[in-house]
């Protein structure tokens, strides 16, 4: 009888601890999510009233009320395009090679180990590398091109990893069917593997660009200016061939650097500008990430092999 009582007490105690732990788990999750919410709300309360049309078409200024983010968002936009052009072909090609072509040997193992480790390398060291290599050795200057290349290399692992995941999800029957029709390896990749994995690759591209748009430290390190009151050279002009790439070599600033600059001033009016820039940045990254999550779940549902 006593043993029975002991057992019941023991079960009660363990059930209680089980419940306590579940509660802790819930609290941990809530704490993280509430912090995120507090961050968004705090930023929005200060920043949203400051956002108006002029904020987007004005250059930075000594007067907080007149200052805007024109040069910053144009800079962010140009750098995003450069980053995408640099990272997407390289990353997708690397992912395709590692999934479809590479044999199990020490080179492919080295490459794989290296990609895992790149995720842990602090982003600021990419900036130091770019300052030494792109700015001084290759004489590209503190330009949009340098910034785009730097961020391109920084997000390369993200694109490689998501490309590989997307390709790995394609069953082997597809490849075999393609080979059975007499297709070569490249034809299989080109007409089957790449189209079927494009959804997953797109998710990776969106996530990597949202990461690039928020990166600040490597761009400060390569010497981005914090006060820019002009725009890059327009890419279209009246003379033949009507297109030029001079803008690639222009100096730049980006939204996170502009925000940092305003944030490091003592006057609270500039902090309001920083908050407004933060709202724009946050909105863009959240929309991009939300889109990526939506795409991922949609493709996962749609793909039934």
């Amino acid at each position: 009888m006593e043993a029975h009582q002991d057992l019941l007490a023991n079960i009660k105690r363990r059930q209680m601890w089980d419940f306590v732990f579940a509660l802790m788990g819930l609290l941990a999750l809530l704490f993280a999510l509430v912090t995120l919410l507090a961050l968004i709300v705090d930023l929005a309360i200060t920043g949203v009233p400051r956002i108006n049309a002029e904020f987007f078409v004005n250059f930075p200024s000594r007067f907080a009320e007149k200052a805007g983010i024109l040069s910053a968002w144009v800079g962010s936009f140009c750098i995003m395009i450069t980053t995408a052009f640099c990272a997407i072909p390289l990353g997708v090609a690397a992912g395709v090679y590692l999934e479809e072509y590479s044999k199990k040997n020490w080179i492919s193992q080295l490459i794989e180990l290296n990609i895992i480790n790149l995720a842990g390398i602090p982003s600021i060291t990419y900036g130091l590398m770019a300052l030494g290599l792109f700015v001084y050795k290759l004489k590209l200057g503190q330009s949009i091109l340098t910034a785009g290349l730097t961020l391109g290399l920084l997000v390369l692992p993200i694109i490689i990893v998501t490309t590989r995941e997307a390709i790995r999800a394609i069953p082997n029957t597809i490849r075999e069917a393609s080979y059975a029709m007499g297709a070569s390896k490249w034809q299989t990749v080109r007409y089957h593997i790449l189209p079927y994995s494009s959804g997953g690759i797109l998710t990776g591209v969106i996530i990597s660009l949202s990461r690039a748009i928020g990166e600040t430290a490597p761009l400060i390190t390569i010497g981005a200016l914090t006060f820019i009151a002009f725009l890059p050279t327009p890419p279209v002009d009246g003379q033949f061939p009507y297109l030029n790439f001079k803008w690639l070599m222009d100096p730049f600033t980006v939204m996170p650097i502009q925000m940092f600059n305003w944030l490091s001033r003592p006057q609270p009016e500039f902090h309001v500008n920083a908050a407004a820039t933060g709202v724009v940045l946050l909105l863009m990254t959240l929309i991009m990430n939300g889109g990526a999550i939506y795409l991922r779940s949609r493709f996962r549902k749609k793909m039934k092999w």
């Binding site: 961050l39 990461r211 928020g214 600040t216 946050l282």
Partner: peptide
């Protein structure tokens, strides 16, 4: 999403 927020925004926070 916590990892997606730009770090400069965390600095503000």
């Amino acid at each position: 999403l916590l990892a997606a927020v730009p770090t400069v925004v965390y600095g503000y926070f």
